[in-house]
């Protein structure tokens, strides 16, 4: 048996193919599944070990990024998703997928998995959509199963609405204490570790996200979302400056995240393939 990953598709999800590919490269078996097949029960989410909500422009992001897809999942998959997390199965949302998980209230989330929205991702302060490479730094002590052992990573951001905010600033401290503020934008010219709450200038932080937050996890560390695209750096030849580097070609920096989840699932569910 292999680790089985459910990759959601449909309604403007765009990054489903590469997201499926990176889990396969990490040794799992990916299936691209139309959201409606889960909602109508044709496919049972519980048959999978990992769920991924890939990037894209679900419903064109017309009423705010991820909002309509978030509602589809919140209304259509509520119990299935809750059970998934309670069964200790990991979920990742990347870019639009992160926006979906935040708008449906699964991230940063709460202990009861109440699907109450407490944060949001709003328009970049720059005022426009942008595709550019950033450097990320990961929380050392986080219990997030996706980011184990990670220090820094270079990946692209590709969004217009990536500024992480909340209307209750006290929550930020709580999430920080819980180790939920897993990943932040940092200045690549600063020595590791350099993560900070001080707002970094554009374009080091591409969106003026509060506390330079690029991604967060839920209290269990199973549900993880981030604006940048680790799946877009799956191979060394996809880096922003790879032609300037002396490289041994192979899997790219972004792959660690997917290996982490697949390894977690293997050990958690005793899967040896």
């Amino acid at each position: 048996m292999s680790v089985k990953v459910a990759i959601l598709t449909g309604f403007g999800i765009n990054c489903d193919r590469e997201t499926a590919a990176v889990f396969e490269m990490a040794g799992a078996k990916s299936e691209r599944i139309h959201v409606n097949k889960l909602v109508n029960g044709e496919i049972d989410l519980q048959d999978y070990h990992i769920m991924a909500v890939p990037g894209g422009f679900s419903f064109g992001d017309h009423l705010g990024s991820g909002r309509l897809m978030g509602n589809r999942l919140r209304f259509g998959l509520r119990e299935q998703v809750r059970k998934f997390v309670n069964d200790k199965k990991p979920i990742i949302g990347i870019c639009n997928g992160f926006q979906v998980l935040v708008k449906m209230g699964l991230l940063p989330g709460d202990d009861d998995i109440s699907f109450e929205q407490t944060a949001s991702l709003t328009l970049n302060d720059s005022g426009h959509y942008e595709d550019r490479w950033v450097t990320l730094e990961f929380e050392k002590d986080s219990h997030c199963i996706w980011t184990k052992g990670l220090t820094r990573m270079r990946v692209p951001v590709r969004h217009g609405e990536g500024k992480f905010v909340t209307n209750n600033k006290k929550l930020l401290d709580k999430w920080n204490e819980n180790g939920q503020l897993v990943v932040r934008y940092v200045d690549p010219n600063q020595q590791y570790p350099s993560k900070s709450d001080e707002l970094l200038p554009y374009p080091i932080s591409p969106n003026s996200s509060w506390r330079n937050i690029a991604g967060v996890c839920d209290p269990t560390g199973l549900v993880f979302g981030l604006m940048p695209h680790p799946e877009a750096n799956h191979s060394t030849w996809l880096g922003a400056t790879w032609t300037r580097e002396n490289l041994f070609h192979g899997q790219g920096e972004g792959m660690v995240i997917f290996h982490n989840a697949v390894n977690y699932a293997k050990s958690q569910f005793s899967i040896n393939d």
Partner: peptide, 22 residues
Amino acid sequence: VRSYDHEVIGQSVIKPFGGVNH
């Protein structure tokens, strides 16, 4: 050019901009 997504699909080897400062 940066406001176009040039990297979706995860296949972009030589990008519209390169160099040390991209």
